[in-house]
Nucleic acid binder design. Sequence first.
RNA 1: GGCCCGUUCGUCUAGGGGUUAGGACGUAGCCCUCUCAAGGCUAAAACACGAGUUCAAUUCUCGUACGGGCUACCA
Length: 502
Amino acid sequence: MSVRVRFAPSPTGYLHIGAARTALFNWLFARKEGGKFLLRVEDTDLQRSTDESTRSIIEGLKWLGLADYDEEIVFQSRNAGKHREAALRLVREGKAYRDFTPKAERGDANVKQEIAERARSKGAAGEGQDQRDNPFRDLPPEESDARAEAGEPFAVRLKVEREGRSQFEDVVYGAQERDYAEIEDLVLLRSGDLSPLYNLSVVVDDIEMGITHVIRGQDHLTNTHKQVLIYRALGVEVPKFAHLPLILAPNKAKLSKRKHGEVVSLTTYRDRGFVPAAFRNYLALLGWAPPDDKELLSLAELVEKFTLEGVHRSNAVFNFSDTDARQWTDQKALWMNAEYIRTMPLAELLPMVRAELEAAGLWRAEYEEGAGRAWLEKTIDLIRQRFYTLKDFSGQGRAYFGDEFEFDESAVAKNLKKEPRLRELLPALAERIERAEPWDVETSEQALRALAEEAGVKAGLLINASRTALTGQSVGPSMFDVFDVVGRERSAKRLRAAAALV
RNA sequence: GGCCCGUUCGUCUAGGGGUUAGGACGUAGCCCUCUCAAGGCUAAAACACGAGUUCAAUUCUCGUACGGGCUACCA
Protein backbone atom coordinates (compact mmCIF):
# COMPACT_ATOMS: atom_id res chain seq x y z
CA MET A 1 0.00 0.00 0.00
CA SER A 2 1.39 3.37 -0.88
CA VAL A 3 2.19 5.80 1.87
CA ARG A 4 -0.29 8.52 2.81
CA VAL A 5 0.49 10.92 5.61
CA ARG A 6 -1.11 14.07 6.86
CA PHE A 7 -0.21 17.20 8.74
CA ALA A 8 -3.15 18.07 10.96
CA PRO A 9 -2.81 21.41 12.73
CA SER A 10 -5.60 23.05 14.64
CA PRO A 11 -6.04 26.63 13.51
CA THR A 12 -5.92 28.33 16.87
CA GLY A 13 -2.99 30.63 16.23
CA TYR A 14 0.14 31.00 14.20
CA LEU A 15 2.19 28.03 13.07
CA HIS A 16 4.29 26.84 15.99
CA ILE A 17 7.82 25.75 15.10
CA GLY A 18 7.14 22.36 16.65
CA ALA A 19 4.17 21.94 14.37
CA ALA A 20 6.27 23.15 11.46
CA ARG A 21 8.78 20.43 12.20
CA THR A 22 6.00 17.85 12.35
CA ALA A 23 4.84 19.05 8.95
CA LEU A 24 8.39 18.83 7.63
CA PHE A 25 8.89 15.27 8.84
CA ASN A 26 5.57 14.20 7.36
CA TRP A 27 6.50 15.85 4.11
CA LEU A 28 9.99 14.34 4.02
CA PHE A 29 8.63 10.90 4.73
CA ALA A 30 5.98 11.19 2.02
CA ARG A 31 8.44 12.42 -0.56
CA LYS A 32 10.99 9.81 0.40
CA GLU A 33 8.47 7.01 0.09
CA GLY A 34 6.84 8.39 -3.01
CA GLY A 35 3.61 8.77 -1.06
CA LYS A 36 1.03 11.47 -0.56
CA PHE A 37 1.31 14.40 1.81
CA LEU A 38 -2.07 15.71 2.90
CA LEU A 39 -3.25 18.64 4.94
CA ARG A 40 -6.14 18.50 7.36
CA VAL A 41 -7.27 21.48 9.33
CA GLU A 42 -8.61 20.35 12.70
CA ASP A 43 -11.08 23.12 13.24
CA THR A 44 -13.60 21.29 15.38
CA ASP A 45 -13.11 23.71 18.23
CA LEU A 46 -15.19 26.44 16.64
CA GLN A 47 -14.63 28.77 19.57
CA ARG A 48 -10.88 28.95 19.08
CA SER A 49 -10.48 28.24 15.38
CA THR A 50 -10.11 31.15 13.01
CA ASP A 51 -9.79 31.47 9.26
CA GLU A 52 -6.88 33.75 9.83
CA SER A 53 -4.99 31.00 11.62
CA THR A 54 -5.72 28.65 8.77
CA ARG A 55 -4.35 31.17 6.31
CA SER A 56 -1.27 31.78 8.37
CA ILE A 57 -0.58 28.06 8.69
CA ILE A 58 -0.81 27.60 4.95
CA GLU A 59 1.40 30.63 4.47
CA GLY A 60 3.93 29.15 6.83
CA LEU A 61 3.95 25.87 4.93
CA LYS A 62 4.38 27.79 1.73
CA TRP A 63 7.31 29.68 3.17
CA LEU A 64 8.97 26.41 4.16
CA GLY A 65 8.31 24.97 0.73
CA LEU A 66 5.92 22.33 2.03
CA ALA A 67 2.67 23.62 0.62
CA ASP A 68 2.51 21.17 -2.25
CA TYR A 69 0.03 18.90 -0.49
CA ASP A 70 -1.25 16.31 -2.85
CA GLU A 71 -4.99 16.56 -2.34
CA GLU A 72 -7.62 19.08 -1.35
CA ILE A 73 -7.33 20.39 2.18
CA VAL A 74 -9.70 18.57 4.50
CA PHE A 75 -11.54 20.66 7.04
CA GLN A 76 -12.40 18.45 9.94
CA SER A 77 -15.47 20.42 10.97
CA ARG A 78 -17.13 19.52 7.69
CA ASN A 79 -16.93 15.83 8.54
CA ALA A 80 -18.79 16.05 11.83
CA GLY A 81 -21.70 14.14 10.35
CA LYS A 82 -19.50 11.20 9.47
CA HIS A 83 -17.91 11.22 12.87
CA ARG A 84 -21.30 11.16 14.56
CA GLU A 85 -22.51 8.40 12.29
CA ALA A 86 -19.52 6.25 13.17
CA ALA A 87 -20.12 6.70 16.88
CA LEU A 88 -23.81 5.95 16.56
CA ARG A 89 -22.96 2.84 14.63
CA LEU A 90 -20.79 1.72 17.54
CA VAL A 91 -23.76 2.27 19.85
CA ARG A 92 -25.90 0.03 17.65
CA GLU A 93 -23.19 -2.60 17.65
CA GLY A 94 -22.90 -2.45 21.41
CA LYS A 95 -19.34 -1.18 21.30
CA ALA A 96 -20.30 2.20 22.66
CA TYR A 97 -23.14 3.30 24.90
CA ARG A 98 -25.31 6.28 25.68
CA ASP A 99 -24.46 8.01 28.90
CA PHE A 100 -27.52 9.77 30.27
CA THR A 101 -25.76 11.23 33.28
CA PRO A 102 -27.27 14.69 33.77
CA LYS A 103 -25.06 17.69 33.38
CA ALA A 104 -25.29 18.64 37.04
CA GLU A 105 -23.57 15.45 38.10
CA ARG A 106 -20.75 15.70 35.66
CA GLY A 107 -18.73 18.41 37.28
CA ASP A 108 -16.60 19.09 34.22
CA ALA A 109 -16.60 22.80 34.91
CA ASN A 110 -13.01 23.05 35.96
CA VAL A 111 -11.02 20.21 34.53
CA LYS A 112 -7.57 21.38 35.52
CA GLN A 113 -8.74 21.55 39.08
CA GLU A 114 -10.22 18.12 38.80
CA ILE A 115 -6.93 16.71 37.62
CA ALA A 116 -5.19 18.36 40.54
CA GLU A 117 -7.69 16.92 42.97
CA ARG A 118 -7.25 13.54 41.46
CA ALA A 119 -3.52 13.87 42.01
CA ARG A 120 -4.08 14.56 45.68
CA SER A 121 -6.41 11.66 46.31
CA LYS A 122 -4.13 8.67 46.17
CA GLY A 123 -5.26 5.28 45.12
CA ALA A 124 -7.78 6.29 42.53
CA ALA A 125 -7.11 3.89 39.72
CA GLY A 126 -6.93 5.05 36.15
CA GLU A 127 -8.20 8.25 34.73
CA GLY A 128 -11.03 10.07 36.38
CA GLN A 129 -13.80 8.04 37.86
CA ASP A 130 -13.92 4.53 36.60
CA GLN A 131 -16.57 4.81 33.94
CA ARG A 132 -17.00 1.10 34.03
CA ASP A 133 -19.08 1.77 37.11
CA ASN A 134 -21.24 3.93 34.93
CA PRO A 135 -24.79 2.64 35.38
CA PHE A 136 -25.55 3.36 31.75
CA ARG A 137 -22.73 1.19 30.45
CA ASP A 138 -24.87 -1.92 30.57
CA LEU A 139 -28.26 -0.39 30.11
CA PRO A 140 -30.38 -2.75 27.97
CA PRO A 141 -30.39 -1.49 24.36
CA GLU A 142 -34.16 -1.17 24.28
CA GLU A 143 -34.22 1.06 27.32
CA SER A 144 -31.33 3.13 25.97
CA ASP A 145 -33.12 3.53 22.65
CA ALA A 146 -36.38 4.41 24.36
CA ARG A 147 -34.84 7.11 26.51
CA ALA A 148 -33.01 8.55 23.53
CA GLU A 149 -36.20 8.63 21.50
CA ALA A 150 -37.95 10.32 24.38
CA GLY A 151 -35.50 13.15 23.93
CA GLU A 152 -33.35 12.61 26.96
CA PRO A 153 -29.90 14.09 26.33
CA PHE A 154 -26.95 11.75 26.29
CA ALA A 155 -23.27 11.55 25.49
CA VAL A 156 -21.79 8.57 23.71
CA ARG A 157 -18.92 6.74 25.35
CA LEU A 158 -16.73 3.98 24.04
CA LYS A 159 -17.05 0.75 25.97
CA VAL A 160 -13.50 -0.08 26.97
CA GLU A 161 -12.95 -3.67 28.10
CA ARG A 162 -12.46 -4.29 31.77
CA GLU A 163 -9.40 -6.45 31.51
CA GLY A 164 -6.47 -6.72 29.22
CA ARG A 165 -3.93 -4.44 27.67
CA SER A 166 -3.92 -2.18 24.69
CA GLN A 167 -0.84 -2.36 22.56
CA PHE A 168 0.63 -0.91 19.42
CA GLU A 169 4.00 -0.55 17.84
CA ASP A 170 5.40 2.94 17.49
CA VAL A 171 7.98 3.36 14.76
CA VAL A 172 9.99 5.72 16.93
CA TYR A 173 9.22 4.68 20.50
CA GLY A 174 8.84 0.96 20.00
CA ALA A 175 6.27 -1.35 21.57
CA GLN A 176 3.67 0.49 23.62
CA GLU A 177 1.39 -1.10 26.18
CA ARG A 178 -1.26 0.27 28.41
CA ASP A 179 -3.61 -1.44 30.75
CA TYR A 180 -7.28 -1.08 29.85
CA ALA A 181 -7.82 -0.20 33.49
CA GLU A 182 -5.86 2.98 32.78
CA ILE A 183 -8.22 4.00 30.05
CA GLU A 184 -11.59 5.43 30.82
CA ASP A 185 -14.69 4.96 28.72
CA LEU A 186 -13.87 7.97 26.64
CA VAL A 187 -16.57 10.27 25.37
CA LEU A 188 -17.04 10.10 21.62
CA LEU A 189 -19.99 12.44 21.26
CA ARG A 190 -20.89 15.33 23.52
CA SER A 191 -24.27 15.23 25.18
CA GLY A 192 -26.82 17.54 23.68
CA ASP A 193 -25.65 18.34 20.18
CA LEU A 194 -23.81 15.03 19.79
CA SER A 195 -20.81 16.85 18.41
CA PRO A 196 -17.76 14.63 18.00
CA LEU A 197 -14.69 14.85 20.20
CA TYR A 198 -11.10 14.95 19.07
CA ASN A 199 -10.12 11.29 19.39
CA LEU A 200 -13.12 10.15 17.38
CA SER A 201 -12.72 12.80 14.70
CA VAL A 202 -9.05 12.08 14.19
CA VAL A 203 -9.60 8.39 13.78
CA VAL A 204 -12.56 8.66 11.46
CA ASP A 205 -10.82 11.24 9.31
CA ASP A 206 -7.60 9.28 9.17
CA ILE A 207 -9.57 6.25 8.05
CA GLU A 208 -11.48 8.32 5.54
CA MET A 209 -8.28 9.81 4.15
CA GLY A 210 -6.58 6.44 3.96
CA ILE A 211 -3.73 7.54 6.20
CA THR A 212 -1.08 4.85 6.49
CA HIS A 213 1.36 6.58 8.84
CA VAL A 214 0.40 8.93 11.62
CA ILE A 215 3.42 11.11 12.31
CA ARG A 216 2.86 13.61 15.10
CA GLY A 217 4.20 14.99 18.35
CA GLN A 218 4.98 12.77 21.29
CA ASP A 219 2.33 14.57 23.33
CA HIS A 220 -0.15 12.26 21.60
CA LEU A 221 1.65 9.06 22.49
CA THR A 222 -0.43 8.09 25.51
CA ASN A 223 -3.72 8.98 23.88
CA THR A 224 -2.88 6.83 20.91
CA HIS A 225 -4.13 3.86 22.89
CA LYS A 226 -7.57 5.43 22.94
CA GLN A 227 -7.45 5.92 19.21
CA VAL A 228 -6.31 2.34 18.65
CA LEU A 229 -9.36 1.26 20.61
CA ILE A 230 -11.57 3.27 18.29
CA TYR A 231 -9.95 1.80 15.19
CA ARG A 232 -10.52 -1.69 16.56
CA ALA A 233 -14.13 -0.96 17.49
CA LEU A 234 -14.69 0.35 14.01
CA GLY A 235 -13.19 -2.86 12.68
CA VAL A 236 -10.46 -1.10 10.76
CA GLU A 237 -6.78 -1.83 10.53
CA VAL A 238 -4.70 0.62 12.55
CA PRO A 239 -2.13 2.71 10.72
CA LYS A 240 1.51 2.88 11.70
CA PHE A 241 2.29 5.45 14.33
CA ALA A 242 5.47 7.47 14.60
CA HIS A 243 5.67 9.95 17.45
CA LEU A 244 8.20 12.73 17.41
CA PRO A 245 10.17 14.05 20.39
CA LEU A 246 9.04 17.44 21.61
CA ILE A 247 10.84 20.73 21.25
CA LEU A 248 11.49 22.26 24.65
CA ALA A 249 12.36 25.75 25.88
CA PRO A 250 15.73 26.29 27.62
CA ASN A 251 14.04 25.70 30.97
CA LYS A 252 12.93 22.31 29.62
CA ALA A 253 9.28 23.20 29.55
CA LYS A 254 7.21 22.59 26.47
CA LEU A 255 7.66 25.48 24.09
CA SER A 256 4.49 27.51 24.25
CA LYS A 257 3.30 30.69 22.65
CA ARG A 258 1.94 32.03 25.87
CA LYS A 259 5.12 31.62 27.85
CA HIS A 260 7.80 32.00 25.23
CA GLY A 261 6.31 34.45 22.80
CA GLU A 262 7.38 35.10 19.27
CA VAL A 263 10.39 32.76 19.14
CA VAL A 264 8.00 29.85 18.74
CA SER A 265 6.17 31.38 15.79
CA LEU A 266 7.34 30.45 12.35
CA THR A 267 6.37 33.87 11.02
CA THR A 268 8.94 35.43 13.31
CA TYR A 269 11.69 33.77 11.35
CA ARG A 270 10.28 34.97 8.09
CA ASP A 271 9.90 38.50 9.46
CA ARG A 272 13.36 38.60 10.95
CA GLY A 273 15.15 37.69 7.78
CA PHE A 274 15.56 33.97 7.73
CA VAL A 275 16.12 32.14 4.49
CA PRO A 276 13.43 29.44 4.38
CA ALA A 277 15.86 26.72 3.35
CA ALA A 278 18.11 27.55 6.28
CA PHE A 279 15.36 27.39 8.85
CA ARG A 280 14.01 24.21 7.32
CA ASN A 281 17.48 22.69 7.47
CA TYR A 282 17.80 23.66 11.12
CA LEU A 283 14.35 22.28 11.96
CA ALA A 284 15.19 18.97 10.32
CA LEU A 285 18.08 18.55 12.73
CA LEU A 286 15.88 18.88 15.80
CA GLY A 287 15.01 15.34 16.77
CA TRP A 288 16.56 13.72 13.77
CA ALA A 289 20.11 13.32 12.50
CA PRO A 290 21.43 12.15 9.16
CA PRO A 291 23.49 8.97 9.07
CA ASP A 292 26.66 10.95 8.45
CA ASP A 293 28.11 14.14 9.88
CA LYS A 294 26.81 16.40 7.16
CA GLU A 295 24.52 19.05 8.57
CA LEU A 296 24.05 21.49 5.73
CA LEU A 297 21.45 19.65 3.69
CA SER A 298 19.39 20.67 0.73
CA LEU A 299 15.76 19.62 0.53
CA ALA A 300 16.70 16.87 -1.91
CA GLU A 301 19.37 15.60 0.45
CA LEU A 302 16.96 15.67 3.36
CA VAL A 303 14.49 13.62 1.38
CA GLU A 304 17.19 11.18 0.42
CA LYS A 305 18.53 10.71 3.95
CA PHE A 306 15.37 10.94 6.00
CA THR A 307 14.10 7.89 7.81
CA LEU A 308 11.63 7.53 10.67
CA GLU A 309 14.12 5.18 12.28
CA GLY A 310 16.59 8.05 12.46
CA VAL A 311 14.20 10.05 14.64
CA HIS A 312 15.16 9.94 18.27
CA ARG A 313 13.20 9.63 21.44
CA SER A 314 14.57 12.36 23.66
CA ASN A 315 13.19 15.85 23.54
CA ALA A 316 15.31 18.63 22.07
CA VAL A 317 15.94 21.97 23.72
CA PHE A 318 15.55 25.00 21.56
CA ASN A 319 18.21 27.25 22.97
CA PHE A 320 17.59 30.95 23.17
CA SER A 321 17.70 33.76 25.66
CA ASP A 322 15.06 36.37 26.28
CA THR A 323 17.52 38.71 27.94
CA ASP A 324 20.26 38.70 25.31
CA ALA A 325 19.07 40.20 22.03
CA ARG A 326 21.91 38.58 20.13
CA GLN A 327 20.57 35.21 21.18
CA TRP A 328 16.93 35.90 20.49
CA THR A 329 16.81 32.47 18.86
CA ASP A 330 19.00 29.39 18.76
CA GLN A 331 22.58 30.28 17.80
CA LYS A 332 22.89 27.34 15.52
CA ALA A 333 19.85 28.43 13.57
CA LEU A 334 21.36 31.89 13.22
CA TRP A 335 24.69 30.44 12.14
CA MET A 336 22.98 28.24 9.60
CA ASN A 337 21.10 31.20 8.19
CA ALA A 338 24.38 33.10 7.76
CA GLU A 339 25.87 30.06 6.11
CA TYR A 340 23.00 29.91 3.64
CA ILE A 341 23.16 33.63 2.94
CA ARG A 342 26.82 33.55 2.05
CA THR A 343 26.91 30.27 0.15
CA MET A 344 23.60 29.86 -1.62
CA PRO A 345 23.42 30.58 -5.35
CA LEU A 346 23.17 34.32 -5.85
CA ALA A 347 20.22 33.85 -8.17
CA GLU A 348 18.24 32.30 -5.33
CA LEU A 349 19.26 34.91 -2.81
CA LEU A 350 18.52 37.88 -5.05
CA PRO A 351 14.72 37.77 -4.88
CA MET A 352 14.87 37.66 -1.09
CA VAL A 353 17.24 40.61 -0.96
CA ARG A 354 15.03 42.44 -3.38
CA ALA A 355 12.01 41.94 -1.15
CA GLU A 356 14.00 43.23 1.78
CA LEU A 357 15.26 46.30 -0.08
CA GLU A 358 11.80 47.03 -1.39
CA ALA A 359 10.34 46.84 2.08
CA ALA A 360 12.99 49.27 3.26
CA GLY A 361 12.45 51.62 0.35
CA LEU A 362 15.95 51.01 -0.96
CA TRP A 363 15.12 49.26 -4.20
CA ARG A 364 15.76 51.14 -7.46
CA ALA A 365 14.42 50.44 -10.90
CA GLU A 366 17.95 50.40 -12.32
CA TYR A 367 18.63 47.19 -10.39
CA GLU A 368 16.30 45.34 -12.73
CA GLU A 369 18.75 44.85 -15.57
CA GLY A 370 21.93 45.87 -17.34
CA ALA A 371 24.71 47.66 -15.51
CA GLY A 372 22.55 48.32 -12.48
CA ARG A 373 21.82 44.64 -12.23
CA ALA A 374 25.48 43.72 -12.54
CA TRP A 375 26.35 46.23 -9.84
CA LEU A 376 23.64 44.86 -7.57
CA GLU A 377 24.90 41.33 -7.94
CA LYS A 378 28.48 42.29 -7.29
CA THR A 379 27.51 44.31 -4.25
CA ILE A 380 25.31 41.66 -2.73
CA ASP A 381 27.92 39.03 -3.30
CA LEU A 382 30.43 41.24 -1.53
CA ILE A 383 28.42 42.19 1.53
CA ARG A 384 26.58 38.94 2.09
CA GLN A 385 29.75 37.34 3.38
CA ARG A 386 29.26 39.02 6.74
CA PHE A 387 25.50 38.94 7.12
CA TYR A 388 23.40 36.82 9.40
CA THR A 389 19.91 37.63 8.23
CA LEU A 390 18.20 39.19 5.25
CA LYS A 391 17.52 42.20 7.46
CA ASP A 392 21.21 43.03 7.36
CA PHE A 393 20.95 44.04 3.73
CA SER A 394 18.79 47.00 4.66
CA GLY A 395 20.48 47.51 8.03
CA GLN A 396 24.24 47.16 7.98
CA GLY A 397 24.11 47.22 4.20
CA ARG A 398 22.18 50.45 3.96
CA ALA A 399 25.10 52.63 2.87
CA TYR A 400 25.59 50.55 -0.24
CA PHE A 401 22.10 51.20 -1.53
CA GLY A 402 21.51 54.79 -0.57
CA ASP A 403 23.21 57.92 0.65
CA GLU A 404 21.23 58.14 3.82
CA PHE A 405 22.81 56.01 6.47
CA GLU A 406 23.79 56.40 10.08
CA PHE A 407 27.25 56.65 11.52
CA ASP A 408 28.04 54.26 14.27
CA GLU A 409 29.31 56.36 17.15
CA SER A 410 32.02 54.03 18.26
CA ALA A 411 33.22 53.69 14.67
CA VAL A 412 33.49 57.46 14.35
CA ALA A 413 35.36 57.68 17.63
CA LYS A 414 37.72 54.88 16.75
CA ASN A 415 38.41 55.57 13.11
CA LEU A 416 37.87 59.30 12.59
CA LYS A 417 38.19 61.29 15.78
CA LYS A 418 41.35 59.59 16.90
CA GLU A 419 43.58 61.28 14.33
CA PRO A 420 43.14 65.06 13.68
CA ARG A 421 45.23 64.85 10.53
CA LEU A 422 42.37 63.02 8.90
CA ARG A 423 40.68 66.41 8.53
CA GLU A 424 43.15 67.10 5.75
CA LEU A 425 43.91 63.55 4.70
CA LEU A 426 40.35 62.62 3.90
CA PRO A 427 39.81 65.40 1.32
CA ALA A 428 43.26 64.64 -0.05
CA LEU A 429 42.30 61.02 -0.47
CA ALA A 430 39.09 62.09 -2.17
CA GLU A 431 41.10 64.01 -4.71
CA ARG A 432 43.43 61.09 -5.41
CA ILE A 433 40.49 58.80 -5.81
CA GLU A 434 38.91 61.11 -8.31
CA ARG A 435 42.10 61.01 -10.33
CA ALA A 436 42.66 57.24 -10.18
CA GLU A 437 42.73 55.82 -13.72
CA PRO A 438 41.31 53.48 -14.65
CA TRP A 439 38.88 53.33 -11.73
CA ASP A 440 39.19 49.87 -10.15
CA VAL A 441 40.22 47.97 -7.05
CA GLU A 442 43.94 48.21 -7.87
CA THR A 443 44.12 51.92 -8.65
CA SER A 444 42.17 52.94 -5.57
CA GLU A 445 44.53 50.86 -3.46
CA GLN A 446 47.57 52.42 -5.13
CA ALA A 447 46.16 55.89 -4.64
CA LEU A 448 45.49 55.32 -0.97
CA ARG A 449 48.82 53.68 -0.21
CA ALA A 450 50.71 56.38 -2.04
CA LEU A 451 49.00 59.08 -0.01
CA ALA A 452 49.69 57.20 3.21
CA GLU A 453 53.36 56.95 2.40
CA GLU A 454 53.69 60.57 1.43
CA ALA A 455 51.89 61.70 4.54
CA GLY A 456 53.89 59.31 6.68
CA VAL A 457 50.88 57.52 8.13
CA LYS A 458 49.96 53.87 8.15
CA ALA A 459 47.74 52.75 5.31
CA GLY A 460 45.46 51.22 7.92
CA LEU A 461 44.65 54.67 9.26
CA LEU A 462 43.27 55.77 5.92
CA ILE A 463 41.64 52.45 5.25
CA ASN A 464 39.74 52.34 8.50
CA ALA A 465 38.81 55.99 8.28
CA SER A 466 37.54 55.42 4.76
CA ARG A 467 35.45 52.48 5.86
CA THR A 468 33.69 54.60 8.42
CA ALA A 469 33.42 57.52 6.02
CA LEU A 470 31.83 55.40 3.33
CA THR A 471 29.67 53.02 5.33
CA GLY A 472 29.32 54.57 8.75
CA GLN A 473 30.74 51.44 10.27
CA SER A 474 34.00 50.07 11.58
CA VAL A 475 33.53 46.66 10.06
CA GLY A 476 32.91 45.49 6.54
CA PRO A 477 34.44 44.05 3.42
CA SER A 478 37.90 44.77 2.14
CA MET A 479 38.08 48.56 1.75
CA PHE A 480 39.07 48.60 -1.89
CA ASP A 481 36.11 46.44 -2.76
CA VAL A 482 33.97 48.94 -0.91
CA PHE A 483 35.44 51.84 -2.93
CA ASP A 484 34.74 49.88 -6.06
CA VAL A 485 31.16 49.15 -5.25
CA VAL A 486 30.29 52.53 -3.74
CA GLY A 487 31.79 54.18 -6.82
CA ARG A 488 34.25 56.93 -7.47
CA GLU A 489 32.02 59.98 -7.07
CA ARG A 490 30.09 58.74 -4.10
CA SER A 491 33.31 57.66 -2.41
CA ALA A 492 34.96 61.03 -2.88
CA LYS A 493 31.85 62.80 -1.66
CA ARG A 494 31.61 60.70 1.47
CA LEU A 495 35.31 61.10 2.22
CA ARG A 496 34.99 64.88 2.10
CA ALA A 497 31.82 64.85 4.16
CA ALA A 498 33.47 62.68 6.78
CA ALA A 499 36.27 65.22 7.27
CA ALA A 500 33.71 67.25 9.17
CA LEU A 501 33.25 64.42 11.64
CA VAL A 502 36.91 64.29 12.61
C1' G B 1 -1.24 10.84 42.53
C1' G B 2 -1.35 7.16 38.38
C1' C B 3 0.33 5.66 33.63
C1' C B 4 3.78 6.43 29.73
C1' C B 5 8.41 8.40 27.65
C1' G B 6 13.27 10.06 28.16
C1' U B 7 18.63 11.19 30.26
C1' U B 8 26.24 11.46 25.90
C1' C B 9 30.09 18.40 26.17
C1' G B 10 26.21 24.86 27.72
C1' U B 11 22.92 23.47 23.11
C1' C B 12 21.92 20.11 18.66
C1' U B 13 23.86 15.29 18.17
C1' A B 14 27.24 10.50 16.47
C1' G B 15 28.46 6.10 18.63
C1' G B 16 27.69 1.54 21.09
C1' G B 17 30.22 -4.36 25.55
C1' G B 18 37.06 -3.13 24.87
C1' U B 19 37.09 4.10 21.26
C1' U B 20 42.45 9.13 22.93
C1' A B 21 33.81 8.89 23.43
C1' G B 22 33.43 11.70 17.09
C1' G B 23 30.99 16.08 14.66
C1' A B 24 28.24 20.89 14.63
C1' C B 25 26.83 25.61 17.11
C1' G B 26 28.60 28.61 20.89
C1' U B 27 33.13 29.93 23.91
C1' A B 28 38.70 30.79 24.21
C1' G B 29 43.52 31.07 21.79
C1' C B 30 46.76 31.17 17.46
C1' C B 31 47.41 31.89 12.06
C1' C B 32 45.73 34.97 7.98
C1' U B 33 44.81 40.37 7.85
C1' C B 34 43.19 47.29 6.28
C1' U B 35 38.56 46.30 10.18
C1' C B 36 35.03 42.60 10.91
C1' A B 37 33.63 38.14 9.21
C1' A B 38 34.90 33.79 6.49
C1' G B 39 38.78 30.11 6.33
C1' G B 40 42.83 27.10 8.70
C1' C B 41 44.84 25.14 13.27
C1' U B 42 44.29 24.38 18.55
C1' A B 43 41.93 24.31 23.42
C1' A B 44 38.33 23.88 27.38
C1' A B 45 33.77 21.04 27.51
C1' A B 46 29.75 15.12 28.14
C1' C B 47 28.22 9.23 28.88
C1' A B 48 22.78 11.61 35.77
C1' C B 49 23.55 8.22 40.11
C1' G B 50 23.63 3.20 42.44
C1' A B 51 23.51 -1.89 42.02
C1' G B 52 23.62 -6.32 38.86
C1' U B 53 25.37 -9.26 34.40
C1' U B 54 30.37 -9.70 32.28
C1' C B 55 37.23 -10.81 31.93
C1' A B 56 35.31 -5.84 30.53
C1' A B 57 29.96 -1.45 30.83
C1' U B 58 28.95 4.92 28.61
C1' U B 59 26.63 0.83 25.73
C1' C B 60 22.67 -4.75 28.47
C1' U B 61 19.19 -5.40 33.13
C1' C B 62 17.03 -3.44 37.52
C1' G B 63 16.42 0.47 40.78
C1' U B 64 16.98 5.78 42.26
C1' A B 65 17.12 10.79 40.90
C1' C B 66 15.90 14.35 37.52
C1' G B 67 13.18 16.08 33.20
C1' G B 68 9.03 15.65 29.94
C1' G B 69 4.15 13.97 28.23
C1' C B 70 -0.73 12.30 29.17
C1' U B 71 -4.50 11.84 32.57
C1' A B 72 -11.47 16.98 29.66
C1' C B 73 -18.32 16.12 27.14
C1' C B 74 -9.98 20.76 24.68
C1' A B 75 -7.34 19.88 20.25
